[in-house]
Computed example of a mutant assay.
Amino acid sequence: MQMLLHKQKKNPHSSKGNRLLITVNVLGSAGPLRFLVNEDELVAAVIDTTLKSYAREGRLPVLGSDLNNFRLYSANAGTDALSHWETIGSRGGRNFVLFKKPQRQLEATKGNIIARKGSSRWKAWLHRSLNLKISSH
Rank of each mutant, 00 (worst) to 15 (best):
G17L: 06
W125R: 13
N68L: 08
N95F: 00
Q103D: 15
G64F: 03
Q103Y: 02
S14N: 09
S83F: 04
N76E: 14
R34L: 03
G31N: 12
L72N: 00
T49G: 12
R94L: 03
K133F: 07
L67E: 02
W122I: 08
I134P: 03
F70L: 01
N18Q: 12
E57I: 04
G58L: 12
F96T: 00
L33Y: 03
S135D: 10
G31T: 04
T50L: 02
S29Q: 05
N131S: 08
S29C: 09
S135Q: 10
N69M: 06
A55F: 00
W85S: 14
A75H: 04
T49V: 05
A55R: 03
G17M: 08
L27G: 00
W85T: 14
S65C: 11
K101A: 15
T109K: 08
K9E: 13
K110T: 06
A45V: 04
T49S: 15
D80A: 10
R116E: 08
A81T: 06
A30G: 02
L42T: 02
A115Q: 14
D66T: 04
V26K: 07
L82H: 06
D40G: 05
A81H: 10
A108Y: 05
S83W: 11
E86N: 15
H127E: 13
S119E: 14
P12Y: 06
V37F: 06
G89F: 08
G93M: 15
G78P: 08
Y54T: 00
R56D: 03
S135P: 00
G31Q: 07
I88W: 13
D80G: 05
Y73G: 13
I88M: 05
F35V: 02
K117Q: 09
N11S: 12
G111H: 03
L36A: 08
Y54W: 07
L130G: 00
Q103G: 04
I22K: 01
A81S: 14
L126K: 08
P32F: 03
L5I: 04
A108Q: 05
V97M: 04
S136Q: 11
G89L: 15
N76W: 02
M1Q: 08
T49Q: 15
A77G: 00
M1I: 07
S15F: 15
Q105W: 08
K52T: 15
M3R: 06
H6I: 13
R128S: 06
N69G: 01
S119R: 14
F99A: 02
L67V: 07
